[in-house]
Nucleic acid binder design. Structure first.
Length: 829
DNA sequence: GCAAGGTC
């Protein structure tokens, strides 16, 4: 039997299809898909299935000096047990193996990992095939000319793994230990995350150091016949054009001069035609950027693209390539859209062009094509709105890459008034070209009328605007990702994840991301003692070393030994500064948690964590001062820059994924609760009859509101109410529970309140909805299936776990008993 | 529990 190994299941399926001429069957082994036909088996890995780490005796951070990690052994162990087991068992049945992982460095290393696992089972021949895209031609060609694994290239990848682990782990542990941050809140550094963080911190430093300067600009409204347009004053500044006037008296003088004139005389008219080339095919970075301008975060854009890829609608979304491969026939792909809505007309128009010649970007690589639609067309109803919007972006980008350039007419008019020059730049779209099919890049025109030299233009109005120079802008997420690409740090698959990591570590917050005091302290410390780890130079050096290993000019040991020596020197320096570094980090951690000063003793008011893990606001003077304020029980608190004017206290935001909300000033929240009175609305269903408990609308000091029993804490019956909006009790009462209906006014539109209805009914509906949503979250239960299940009485994961598989299969069309058993196994896990 | 790199 011949065993074929690919990097992912998707590639395994497609290669099996090609090599078997569509005759392959799929079976499962250890939960892994295996495709079989004739004497062949094809299995997909899931990227790396083994990982590097230190031996277990190095696991205790307190027991091991961080520097000891530098010379510690490094062991490889399976990270995907089921796949490794499937591979081993297939290997025992094989009499030859072929490695068909991606055609790049990491693919070669993943191939070597598979090679070593197979070698532990058998000594059958193992070959390597390489192809740059999974098409019939390329794949058959590659399998007809197998080669050997490139162990030097794989070793280059291993050197990276080792260096990243040693530097990252040793320095991360050092900083975490020095600041006594050992729990979930450890302080991390790494070859990619730290230079990225430094980009953000450096920009913030520029913004903080920025000293704004005053300047003035003068704009005149000119008119020819009835047609008005704006023209801006400019002057010659050492051969270049300048609009900003730095001296107020000078600005006044120019302003008065122009204002005293009735008209301006045209001194020059220049017309130019400019072509505006269509964009290059999408690589990951360009895609993230385009999705970013539609409002998607980098992470969200990638996760939608991955779903579209898994569903078969778009190609692999992780790619650097910006040149379509030869085997992509653009006309054939356009054809696939001709009969679809809403793309049919555009596809037809593109096919009618004289030629369909795609644009080419700068990077051509061998692993995956640029992101483009596959031609498999989704049913719009099966996609969420976001998925559809991103799909449309990818389709339209493909359209744009095969469309004609746009042409613009630029018209520049200069007129003179009182010796001052005024300019107007007009822009008119002559040929829309690719803009017809790609509405995402701006095609807006600026109107300037046709004029001739010597013509008089009426001056309708003149304005002088006082302005200030602005600090540089913070980098947005997609800007950071393209900056990372420019600097060569991270990869197409990891850059968006690195940003996510910086958020998780408490280094940045908000969008555009803003660094915390901790982030600044980490960058300070690294700059002082381990400059390399915050510099893109580390990656550049590593790349050069890896190239040398791949070319056989250096060995893995040469490179890793040298790197170990450099890190030894870093630790020699760090040794004496451990306390100083730790103190600086701790001060910054405290600054990030400080919201103001204590109203009772004036000490710092901090966000603290109780022994049970819940957050609250407490005084730094504890135990002498016992002032506290509660915080909401959901989410992680984040201190905002915004300050409450009444209490000189910073606002707090609670981060809880999609339930994130701004709590505001904790003192205001507590005071509002103290001043509010409970409003009784009915009898407590739990203890009303027996003890006379009543239900009341209550405001808690933590900012939450609820309908709860007046006998609390003897009776803890309660129903949650929304955190925001005015609560309005209605006349209308619920017949079943004898409680008044409730409306929530969010202030935006008082005529259209949120009609909550009876609080008990509302809460019951809310719970039922949540249960069905939990059902949908189970892998394999789509929203349609969840609907059908709940119609059959299976309304929550608990119901499903308790259900009789055969009975469910009988009641719900399209669901088998085996399927139900599989869900039940997942539920137990 | 540390990194970065694959993949889901």
């Amino acid at each position: 039997m011949q065993l074929i190994i690919t990097e992912k299941d998707n590639a395994a399926r497609r290669i099996a299809e090609i090599l078997s001429d569509g005759g392959a069957d799929a079976e499962r082994r250890n939960g892994v898909n295996v495709y079989k036909w004739g004497g062949k088996r094809c299995v997909g890995l899931s990227g790396h299935v083994v990982g590097v780490d230190f031996p277990p005796e190095y696991n205790d951070w307190r027991d091991v000096q961080p520097a000891e990690l530098i010379d510690a052994d490094i062991v490889k162990s399976p990270t995907k047990e089921n796949i490794v087991a499937a591979l081993r068992s297939l290997a025992r049945e094989a009499d030859e193996a072929v490695i068909a992982t991606d055609y790049d460095r990491e693919g070669e290393l993943i191939g070597k990992e598979a090679y070593e696992l197979i070698r532990e089972e058998t000594d059958v021949p193992i070959q390597r095939v390489r192809f740059s895209s999974i098409t019939e031609n390329e794949v058959k060609q590659a399998f007809g000319n197998p080669d050997d694994l490139d162990f030097d290239l794989a070793a280059a990848g291993e050197a990276r793994q080792i260096i990243d682990l040693i530097w990252g782990a040793a320095l991360t542990r050092f900083l975490s230990l020095s600041a006594r941050q050992l729990g979930d809140d450890f302080i991390s550094v790494g070859r990619v995350q730290s230079p990225t963080l430094k980009l953000i911190v450096d920009r913030e430093r520029e913004i903080e150091a920025f000293d704004p300067e005053d300047y003035w600009e003068i704009v005149a409204d000119l008119a020819k016949n009835g047609s008005g347009f704006e023209a801006q004053y400019f002057y010659d500044d050492d051969g270049s054009e300048a609009e900003r006037i730095w001296d107020e008296a000078e600005a006044d003088r120019v302003f008065e001069g122009i204002s005293g004139q009735e008209s301006a005389t045209v001194t020059s008219v220049r017309r130019r035609t400019r072509t505006d080339a269509p964009p290059a095919p999408f690589n990951t970075t360009a895609f993230i950027q385009a999705a970013g301008s539609l409002g998607y975060s980098a992470q969200r854009a990638m996760s939608i693209a991955e779903e579209l890829y898994t569903a078969g609608y778009v190609t692999y979304p992780r790619t650097d390539n910006t040149v379509y491969p030869d085997d992509l026939d653009p006309e054939e792909l356009l054809d696939a859209f001709v009969s679809t809505s809403p793309f049919g007309d555009d596809a037809m128009a593109l096919l009618e062009q004289d030629s369909v010649e795609p644009t080419r970007g700068e990077t051509e690589s061998t692993d995956h094509p640029p992101i483009h639609p596959t031609g498999e067309f989704p049913d719009r109803n099966n996609l969420s709105e976001d998925e559809w919007e991103v799909y449309e972006l990818i389709v339209r980008r493909f359209f744009a890459t095969v469309a004609e350039p746009a042409t613009w007419e630029h018209l520049r008019v200069v007129a003179e008034a009182d010796g001052a020059q005024l300019k107007a730049n007009g822009k008119r779209l002559l040929e829309a070209g690719y803009h017809e099919v790609y509405p995402y890049s701006s095609a807006s025109e600026t109107h300037v009328p046709d004029v001739e030299e010597g013509e008089q233009l009426r001056i309708d109005d003149v304005e002088m605007e006082a302005k200030q120079t602005q600090p540089p802008r913070r980098y947005g997420q997609s800007r950071l990702i393209s900056k990372m690409e420019d600097l060569g740090i991270g990869t197409k698959s990891t850059r968006h994840g690195t940003l996510e990591k910086l958020y998780d570590r408490g280094y940045i917050d908000g969008d555009p991301p803003q660094p915390t005091a901790l982030a600044k302290a980490v960058v300070d410390a690294a700059e002082a003692f381990a400059d390399l780890i915050v510099s893109e130079e580390m990656t550049a050096q590593l790349e050069a070393d890896m190239t040398a290993i791949a070319n056989g000019e250096a060995t893995l040991d040469d490179v890793t030994d040298e790197s170990r020596e450099m890190l030894e020197r870093v630790f020699a320096e760090l040794h004496d500064s451990r306390e100083e570094v730790g103190e600086h980090l701790q001060e910054s951690l405290k600054a990030d948690r400080t919201i103001g000063s204590c109203p009772e003793c004036g000490d710092d008011l901090l966000i603290r964590r109780s022994r049970h893990g819940s957050y609250f606001v407490g005084c730094d003077g504890y135990p002498d001062c016992r002032y506290t304020l509660p915080l909401p029980s959901t989410g992680e608190p984040l201190v905002l820059d915004e300050v409450c004017e009444d209490h000189d206290t910073k606002h707090v935001k609670m981060l809880a994924g999609s339930d994130t909300f701004v709590h505001g000033c904790p003192r205001c929240q507590a005071e509002a609760a103290d001043e509010s009175e409970d409003e009784v609305i009915g009898e407590c269903p739990e203890c009303g009859e027996e003890h006379g408990g009543e239900l009341a609308i209550k405001h808690l000091r933590s900012g939450s509101r609820l309908v709860g029993c007046t006998r609390y804490p003897d009776c803890d019956y309660s129903l949650p109410l929304p955190r925001r909006g005015d609560i309005e009790v209605q006349e209308q009462r619920c017949e079943e529970h004898d409680l008044p209906h409730i409306h929530i006014l969010d202030g935006a539109d008082d005529d259209d309140p949120w009609e909550l209805g009876c609080p008990i009914c509302n809460y019951e509906e809310y719970q039922a909805r949540n249960a069905v949503e939990d059902l949908e979250d189970l892998s394999g239960v789509g929203s349609k299936t969840a609907e059908k299940l709940s119609a059959a009485g299976v309304e929550s994961p608990d119901d499903l776990a308790a259900a009789e598989p055969d009975a469910v299969a009988e009641q719900v069309q399209g669901v088998s008993a085996d399927q139900v058993r599989e869900w039940q196994t997942d539920l137990e896990a």
